[in-house]
Amino acid sequence: MNKIGYVTAALAMTLAVAAYAHNGATGIVKERMDAMMAMGNAVKALAPMMRGETAYDADAVRIAAATFTSHAGESMTALFPEGTGGSPSAAKDAVWEDWDEFVSLAEQLATYSAGLALAADNPPIMATGDMSATMMGGETMMGEESAAMMGVAPTLDTIEFAAMPVDGAFEMVSQSCSACHAKFRIEAN
């Protein structure tokens, strides 16, 4: 299975868990769960296109990118005020203990989401199994694969995404989500 497949599977599982976890959520916790669910649904809508399983639709990519953008950056961090952890929230205490990193990942998602919208008209590579080695002129953009999972951000801005294959931009968005979930989200049992 390629990287997009693994990320998609992980996010699909997250969606299933999130649907269950919504039981009993109210207020800001429900708002943030709904935002995460909307982003997860956007990933689920794009993943088959990025794997070449369904026809590519640039408008669908722009719509999903708008969903990610609307829930990233300050919009995301505003949904995590101090004292809103604990059940039914899936947020770890690490959100508030390492707030600067959480903010950084939320801002990274905003940048990558805007970049995904810019890359929407670029043809996808269709996930060759080592997407990072085929993006940006054949150079590895992510460095070591573990860097993305550790939340280490490549130094790309939204303009650089304009030349990137759309599935590469999608992978960047997905890896940003995964990096945040790995550190700041409670795993389902």
Results as ranks from 00 to 15, higher is better:
I159Q: 06
T158R: 04
F161N: 05
S178K: 09
E171R: 03
M149H: 03
M149A: 02
S176K: 12
S146P: 04
A162R: 05
Q175N: 15
A162H: 01
V152M: 08
P154F: 05
F161D: 02
M172W: 10
E160R: 05
E171H: 06
G151K: 06
A153L: 08
S146V: 09
K183D: 00
K183P: 07
P154E: 09
I159R: 03
L156K: 12
M142G: 10
A182G: 07
M150L: 02
V152W: 04
A163P: 02
T155P: 13
E145G: 11
I159Y: 02
G151V: 01
S146W: 10
E144V: 13
A179P: 06
K183R: 14
A148T: 00
L156Y: 00
A147V: 10
F170L: 08
A162W: 01
P165W: 00
P165H: 04
E145F: 13
C180W: 07
C180S: 02
F161I: 05
D167Q: 12
C180F: 02
S174E: 07
E145T: 14
A182D: 01
L156I: 03
A182N: 08
K183E: 00
A182I: 07
C177G: 05
Q175H: 15
M150D: 08
E144F: 15
Q175Y: 15
C177M: 14
S178I: 15
V152G: 01
S174Q: 12
E160Y: 06
A169D: 05
L156H: 09
V166D: 06
A182Q: 08
G143A: 09
A162L: 02
A148V: 02
M150E: 07
S178E: 12
A148Q: 05
A148W: 05
K183C: 03
A148K: 03
T155A: 11
E145V: 14
D157R: 13
T158S: 13
P165T: 08
E160I: 00
M142E: 05
A147S: 09
A147P: 04
G168C: 07
P165D: 13
G168T: 07
F161C: 02
